[in-house]
Design a protein around this nucleic acid. Sequence first.
DNA 1: TCTTGACTTGGAGTCGACTCCAAGTTATAG
DNA 2: CTATAACTTGGAGTCGACTCCAAGTCAAGA
Lengths: 167, 167
Amino acid sequence: MKEEQTFTIKQTAKETGISEDTIRYYEKIALLSRAERKDNGHRVYRQENIETIRLISCLKKTGMPLEEMRPFLAVSTDADPAEYPELVELLRSHRENIVSQISSLQQVVDFIDMKLEKGRYRRDCSDEIQDDVSENRMEESKPKSVSTVQMSYFSVSAGVGKSPNSV
Amino acid sequence: MKEEQTFTIKQTAKETGISEDTIRYYEKIALLSRAERKDNGHRVYRQENIETIRLISCLKKTGMPLEEMRPFLAVSTDADPAEYPELVELLRSHRENIVSQISSLQQVVDFIDMKLEKGRYRRDCSDEIQDDVSENRMEESKPKSVSTVQMSYFSVSAGVGKSPNSV
DNA sequence: TCTTGACTTGGAGTCGACTCCAAGTTATAG
DNA sequence: CTATAACTTGGAGTCGACTCCAAGTCAAGA
């Protein structure tokens, strides 16, 4: 029962949906720790590593840049995050991020549904949070209070109830 | 009432949260149609254009590449998509995409919550769909039946219930 | 023994999406 | 009249995330 089943990089790629090149790339940039090697130098992966790669893939889907994943991967391999208060903060803040992403996405779904149903509602897709959690290059760090502005997607030639509340 | 309120690019940037440079870039790649100009050549934006930019920003949040947005923007300015069957298809397929994105995200939220609560559940973050709707570069187009595999995030040194169902 | 295939490495190239720059124009303020 | 600010343009540069390549190793099969 020590036979923990191992995978080649090819299998791992297939298993995770991440290409071999990309897996090697992740190792190169140390997002993944150096994989074990066989005598011939070939990488060996086990379930554990595959989970980690899947976590990366999953976080990627949330739009998280690779660099930001590092602490998450730390939490991943490490046991309990409660011991690392700043990680807890990170988790919380990313959670907020995702929640607002979800609502953004939900609004796009609504938009699409509305379009598909040929209805003409209006929908708001602005979200209260700024998405510069990971970006600090913008000069204008104003709160940009857009949250109340109506989003009348697919603006039908500026037709819909559009109160010009000049911000 | 013909005074429809116009915006400079700067105001538009502030209004939409998209930088001036980026707005110009969108125009350059014709994602936005050429903005009106004043006599002095300065761009003029109106509410309608701002909505369009917001739509782009919103779609961006769903991870959609700019190129893929074009048909959406067509739907946006155009009235009714039901006349364009392929657009309807696009909308539907992107809707599916987003729905699965949402569930991915929800799983990450669950993951985080679980981590925050110090519990040790397992969670699955693989999704049934392939995300190569926009990518056709991968050679291996196998269905990769991962949907049942347990995702034991933060794989605690390969400890959790891990049935090695060699795929 | 030679070839094939699966891997290794380092490094170069690509691509999307900006982001920045230099040079020029125009409007207003001092 | 000049300087400042707000814009314009075309183009170059950057950055993240791959993606591809060439050269090499190694094991197994014809």
